[in-house]
Amino acid sequence: MFKINKVFKKPHYLTLQQNNLQEAQKEKNALPAIPNGLWIKCKHCGETIYNKDFNANHKVCTACGHHYRMNARERIDLIMDTGTFKEINTDLKTVNPLDFEGYEEKIADTIKKADIAEAVVTGYGKIHGNDSVIAVMDSNFMMGSMGSVVGEKITRAFEFATAKSKPVIVFAASGGARMQEGILSLMQMAKTSAAAARHDRAGELYVTVLTDPTTGGVTASFAMLGDIILAEPGALIGFAGKRVGEQTIGQKLPEGFQTAEFLIDHGFIDKIVTRDNLKLTLSRLIKLHYS
């Protein structure tokens, strides 16, 4: 029977669909299921692929080309010439400025689990022989969120590069500002942008590589300030996260909303680069500015 109230009912299903989409996206980005360690099933295309091939392909599905997330060490191995990378500012320790319950434990736990000291690794080295300062964010560490230590390390990386007249490459991977540090995290957006400004005014090159996911306060600060902004295929990139987005229900989301492809169509990034081309692209860009 035709029900008039169904016609005028608020389309709640849209929200659900949106959630489902994002859930699916989340699943897609999780590591593929590993049944026995030898073979894995791509959660994106469903194809069964050889695990060794997947890793040799830098975590890109050999069947469909879906780019899975990399941790900071894997990213550094991919980009930097073997043996050239030197990490800087390794001794900064996170504190609990709001006395947020469980924060210290969470940090200690994550350090153990993710085997990394904080959500960003900074340092310098060579990319096909070209000097560069790099900052690599790691989404395994509290979703790459930016608190005081992340902000300070990125700021110091810019200052180091400015002093040495070197380019900066930032690999962004972050859910945004870290809530547990409250307003201090918000201020890191200002601090990192200010350091990027100084590096910029000194005439140095700044390239950002937006990887899955780049959202919130990181998108709204240094990630979007590169002279050249690259992104990996399919990466989630946006400002407002899922929960904030939920408040704007009723708005139909455009196709591919908040993906790298969506951003390039709207003019906010320069180029989508597949992982196999990333190192070469970066080295060529540096060479064009420093030789």
Binding site: A220, S221, A223, Q247, Q251
Partner: peptide, 18 residues
Amino acid sequence: PGVGAEERGQGEAIARNL
């Protein structure tokens, strides 16, 4: 946080102001 704001680069606009 709306769709139009995302389409027109909300992140970039804030970052640029900073």
